[in-house]
Design a protein around this nucleic acid. Structure first.
Lengths: 345, 345
DNA sequence: CTGTTAGCGCCTTCAA
DNA sequence: TTGAAGGCGCTAACAG
């Protein structure tokens, strides 16, 4: 007699000699089932290797116990630990994590948004900085949404991340305290909220230290290594150079390091370089990168907690969750040595 | 009159003035529906914004159209592009990708294995090098499984990856041709299949070039940066040093680079360093890393194609899919300069 | 070409 | 404490 491909609740019920309702109860509300019955059921479950069909459960419960995380680029190491935090918190509460790589492609975003409409996911954690394409049309019945790392401008979506302005401030202050007076800011895309917040912090720190803001030292990048490289090249075309670079993320700082090294300069003797994020690789550059660390795993965990509170309609305090940043001082920053000093020696 | 939270096929049928069967047909077998009817249905779908409930579909079809990818560490940049390839190929064929981070934890593996038992996923792409924990007990009804990058020893699971032995061979040959006679092999965990295959290639290349294999130059690492570092330290404790390091992956090569630099050596003058994989960061080290590139995206795509052929029971040729490796020569390898040469200058 | 209907497997009222 | 039964939304077989 060939058994069904995979055991169902009916198989268990038959073997245990009870009804399927009792099996379901024994699993989900053990208190409502007589001790002896429960034992019989558990034995039958063990014997059959029964695992409830998640699809049937989802259909019935109108909940998939899955949360979708949308990231623009899964191969960007910055997101990895956040994802790890999201997953850890989700699994602690019995949820699974679905990871969606959007590449900022509208069609892909729309496809993933449909995951919630078709009940494949109960909520969305956004790390893309914007609502998924297609969200506007269905604004009225949008699933629970939370934004990690990058806030969603102009939308009421709970934000979990760091105080980017503050992070920039302490980074730039470090540079000023080392003696730097001309500090360049290598920004991400100009309209990006992270770029903007970090720029604000940069300007504030400069102001607090009584330093002027020189527009010529503020360059747009794109958060990529190549962007950092290019920014340096553009700066060298002009005649007035900074003594330090504050980069809006580590990738660009790495690009700056590379470009400077290629031109024969020694960091931090000739120039200081400061990043933001503290991606794992930052400690492996030459020299190791001084940077503003974001507690990525914690951000992920906090974002998921908030998300699940929303999904489960638990009371959750409004407003953003702001986690602390930390200045990690390594080898890429030091007192200004003067342009070309290392080469003169 | 408040509409249902989200439109169902019945809403569409009512509005279109047809039966739900016709709606389903209009969507899945448009050819079997009259032109006029189809138009009415499509209009109703557009009006309601109907999206089929994926859970109901899965329950009915016994297929979730989801494939689970199991990776030991999602924050390991090596896996990222593979995942990207998996996702691209999956979405081309109308499937979604579920990413599971196992950390080689048996409980986590078992949990994810259950995803297929509970119909959340139709198949598993393994990048962990072993069957998930709990697979042995249910061997008889295991879902379709495919192994990417790292073959599963002793199991019949289709493998998609590169010829690791060949990759090691061309890498080591490059070193020998540069003039190196004493080449260390920094291995991953000794029992790991990748470690073993690459060791075999290393020994073969040495043999082909008429060079002896010196057991003292073969060290176990663990595929981590720290592991590379440690290997160098262990080597320096002994008296006989190599002139070149062939590392079983890029992370360890980076560790070697770091350790050498810390000791004041210049690569590639004092030592040459060769990696394996060509992770994105390899071009950003000092000096840029020479390495054996794996076509990661292609591996991902091929693995997913194979997986879906299995899931859909399409004819697929047996045996592994082997993709080509490529030696990427950058700055970390050169002719041997002699121990301490750079320091003597 | 279209409608009726029987489940897919599960959970939860409602009665007993 | 337990069982019977309805229904979540969908697809496909069957009849017309």
């Amino acid at each position: 007699m060939k058994q069904r491909e995979t055991a169902t609740i009916e198989d268990v019920a038959r073997i245990a000699g009870v009804s399927i309702a009792t099996v379901s109860r024994a699993v989900h509300h053990p208190g409502k089932v007589a001790e002896a019955t429960r034992k019989k059921v558990n034995a039958a479950i063990a014997k059959t290797g029964f695992t409830a069909n998640a699809m049937a459960q989802s259909l019935r419960n109108k909940s998939s116990k899955m949360i979708l995380a949308l990231v623009p680029d899964i191969s960007n190491t910055f997101f990895a630990n956040i994802l790890l935090g999201l997953e850890a918190a989700a699994s602690r509460r019995g949820y699974g994590l679905l990871i969606g790589n959007t590449e900022n492609d509208p069609r892909t975003e729309a496809t993933y948004l449909n995951y919630t409409r078709s009940n494949k996911a109960d909520g969305i954690v956004l790390m893309t900085g914007h609502l998924p394409y297609g969200a506007a049309e269905v604004r009225q019945h949008l699933p629970p949404i939370v934004a990690a790392c990058e806030a969603i401008p102009d939308e009421y979506v709970p934000f979990i991340g760091v105080d980017n302005r503050h992070g920039a401030r302490i980074g730039v202050r470090h540079l000023v305290e080392l003696g730097h007076r001309r500090i360049a800011y290598i920004s991400g895309p100009a309209s990006n909220i992270l770029s903007i917040d970090r720029l604000a912090g940069y300007e504030e720190a400069l102001g607090q230290m009584g330093l002027p803001v020189d527009r010529d030292l503020i360059l747009d990048g794109d958060f990529s290594i190549e962007g950092g490289r290019l920014a340096v090249e553009r700066l060298f075309i002009r005649d007035s150079l900074p003594t330090a670079f504050f980069c809006a993320n580590d990738d660009m700082a790495i690009g700056v390091l590379l470009a400077l090294s290629k031109r024969g300069f020694i960091v931090p003797v000739d120039f200081s370089v400061l990043g933001f994020d503290d991606i794992p690789f930052s400690s492996c550059t030459t020299p190791p990168l001084t940077t503003v660390r974001q507690p990525r795993r914690l951000i992920g965990e906090a974002a998921m907690e908030k998300m699940l509170d929303m999904v489960e309609r638990k009371p959750t305090n409004e407003g953003p969750v702001i986690l602390p940043v930390e200045l990690i001082i390594r080898g890429s920053t030091g007192a200004p040595g003067g342009f070309g000093l290392s080469r003169a020696i």
